[in-house]
Amino acid sequence: MTSQEALEIVERILPPGTLTSVKTLVFHHSWNGREYRAIAKEAGYDDCYIREAGAELWRSLSEVLQEPVKKKNFRALLKQKFSNQIMM
């Protein structure tokens, strides 16, 4: 599963309007193992802003999936729950 495939799943399961461009940026970079500080520096944002966007994203996913989602486990959870739903 690529980050784009995972993002398409997340877009389907989250309520419309939940994903902002910053949350999408955080999602893609987090999927690839980047730290918040590196994401912020590369994208020209403040560390705290990126960290908060990530926290909001993980909270939204936690509500929808009904289990704790963190930056450290979101990739494994999505693969486990949705690997058979990847749209080709």
Score class of each variant (00 low, 15 high):
residue 50 I to Y: 04
residue 62 S to F: 03
residue 4 Q to H: 12
residue 42 E to N: 11
residue 40 A to Y: 06
residue 62 S to Y: 02
residue 75 R to Q: 06
residue 4 Q to C: 00
residue 27 F to R: 14
residue 58 W to S: 00
residue 18 T to P: 00
residue 5 E to H: 11
residue 64 V to T: 13
residue 77 L to P: 02
residue 49 Y to V: 06
residue 39 I to G: 00
residue 31 W to A: 05
residue 29 H to F: 03
residue 15 P to E: 15
residue 16 P to M: 07
residue 14 L to V: 14
residue 80 Q to P: 00
residue 19 L to R: 14
residue 35 E to Q: 05
residue 14 L to S: 08
residue 34 R to G: 01
residue 4 Q to E: 11
residue 74 F to D: 02
residue 22 V to C: 07
residue 44 G to Q: 03
residue 6 A to P: 08
residue 22 V to E: 13
residue 53 A to D: 04
residue 68 P to Y: 04
residue 56 E to S: 07
residue 41 K to Q: 09
residue 79 K to H: 12
residue 11 E to F: 10
residue 4 Q to M: 05
residue 11 E to G: 06
residue 53 A to E: 12
residue 46 D to C: 02
residue 56 E to L: 12
residue 66 Q to N: 01
residue 3 S to D: 14
residue 26 V to A: 09
residue 61 L to M: 14
residue 61 L to I: 02
residue 10 V to Y: 10
residue 82 F to W: 14
residue 65 L to A: 01
residue 73 N to G: 03
residue 33 G to M: 07
residue 2 T to A: 04
residue 80 Q to H: 12
residue 61 L to H: 02
residue 2 T to V: 09
residue 47 D to C: 00
residue 8 E to R: 15
residue 50 I to V: 13
residue 73 N to R: 13
residue 61 L to G: 02
residue 11 E to M: 14
residue 9 I to A: 02
residue 28 H to Y: 13
residue 77 L to M: 04
residue 33 G to W: 08
residue 21 S to C: 08
residue 8 E to G: 10
residue 72 K to Q: 09
residue 20 T to W: 03
residue 25 L to D: 11
residue 67 E to F: 01
residue 86 I to N: 04
residue 39 I to D: 04
residue 21 S to H: 14
residue 13 I to H: 11
residue 15 P to F: 14
residue 61 L to S: 02
residue 75 R to S: 01
residue 68 P to R: 04
residue 39 I to Q: 04
residue 16 P to R: 10
residue 76 A to T: 12
residue 46 D to W: 08
residue 15 P to R: 15
residue 80 Q to E: 13
residue 31 W to P: 05
residue 64 V to N: 05
residue 19 L to G: 05
residue 12 R to C: 02
residue 33 G to R: 03
residue 59 R to G: 00
residue 9 I to P: 02
residue 84 N to S: 12
residue 53 A to V: 06
residue 52 E to S: 09
residue 42 E to D: 09
residue 39 I to A: 03
residue 23 K to E: 10
residue 30 S to H: 03
residue 61 L to T: 04
residue 53 A to R: 11
residue 32 N to C: 06
residue 51 R to Y: 09
residue 13 I to R: 11
residue 64 V to R: 11
residue 62 S to E: 00
residue 70 K to F: 07
residue 70 K to P: 00
residue 83 S to E: 15
residue 37 R to K: 11
residue 8 E to S: 10
residue 72 K to F: 01
residue 83 S to D: 11
residue 16 P to T: 13
residue 53 A to L: 05
residue 81 K to H: 12
residue 56 E to Q: 13
residue 30 S to D: 06
residue 80 Q to V: 11
residue 17 G to I: 04
residue 24 T to A: 09
residue 43 A to T: 11
residue 13 I to W: 15
residue 51 R to L: 06
residue 28 H to P: 01
residue 26 V to W: 11
